[in-house]
Amino acid sequence: MKIAKKIAIVLLVVLVGMQFYRPEKNVATGDYVAAFETETNPTPEVKAILKTACYDCHSANTEYPWYNNIAPVSYWLADHIEDGKKHLNFSDWENYDAKKKDHKLEELIEEVKEGEMPLKEYTWTHGDAKLTQEQINALVSWAKDARANY
């Protein structure tokens, strides 16, 4: 029992320590998706879908929920955001070449159609990010039209 108590104390100390050393937040100022939206010209409906279901993890700005202030959740969210931006970063759109833009839109279509995006973990706490079939169709149609430019 002494070992279990020592382990519990060490874990508690680590957990408390994690509260003071949090990952950097993904927060931008200004219009962080302007270049992307100007170039791809999404409809107002698609803009709303992108804002609700995509931009938190795939842009330079995240609207954090209250529970992000609690470690280890803050670390878990930071990892998800970093991974999301690695795959597609709408804020970095202007730095992609035409071939990469086409490929990213192709992946967007595939992931949305297959129900892989937005992630289930995200939609658990962001119910409005669950896409209806109508929203999926609108997003896919827009992305196919945008791909024609590349």
Rank of each mutant, 00 (worst) to 15 (best):
M117K: 13
Q133P: 01
R22M: 14
Q19M: 14
N95E: 09
W66T: 09
M1N: 06
T43N: 12
R147V: 02
N61Q: 09
E114Q: 14
Y55M: 12
H87S: 07
Y122T: 04
P65C: 01
L15Q: 06
L105C: 05
I70Q: 08
S59C: 10
E37P: 02
E116A: 11
K113L: 08
L119H: 05
A34H: 07
E39G: 11
V14I: 15
M1D: 09
D56K: 08
K6Y: 11
P118K: 07
E82Q: 13
V14K: 04
A8N: 09
D56P: 03
L12W: 02
A53Q: 12
H58Y: 07
N61F: 13
T132E: 09
K6I: 11
I9D: 02
L77P: 00
W76K: 07
E110V: 02
D31I: 02
L11N: 06
N41M: 11
E37Q: 13
Y96N: 04
K101T: 06
E111P: 00
T29G: 15
H80A: 11
N26D: 13
T38Y: 04
I9W: 11
V46A: 08
L139D: 03
K51I: 03
D97M: 03
E110A: 11
V46N: 14
V112K: 00
V14C: 12
L88N: 02
I7F: 08
L131F: 01
T123W: 05
V10K: 00
E110P: 00
H103P: 00
D128S: 13
A138I: 00
K120L: 10
L108R: 02
P23W: 05
A35E: 14
K6L: 10
E39W: 04
E106S: 13
K6P: 00
E116I: 08
Y64I: 10
K25W: 06
D56S: 06
D145V: 04
G17R: 03
E114V: 01
D83C: 00
A53S: 15
M1L: 01
W93I: 07
P23D: 08
V46P: 14
K51W: 04
D128W: 02
T52A: 13
E63K: 14
A4Q: 11
C57R: 11
I7A: 13
F20V: 04
W76T: 09
R147S: 06
W66M: 09
Y64H: 08
E106D: 12
N68P: 01
K144V: 06
V140M: 05
I9Y: 10
F20K: 05
E134A: 15
L108H: 03
T38D: 14
A53L: 06
R22H: 03
D83W: 02
G17L: 10
Y64R: 07
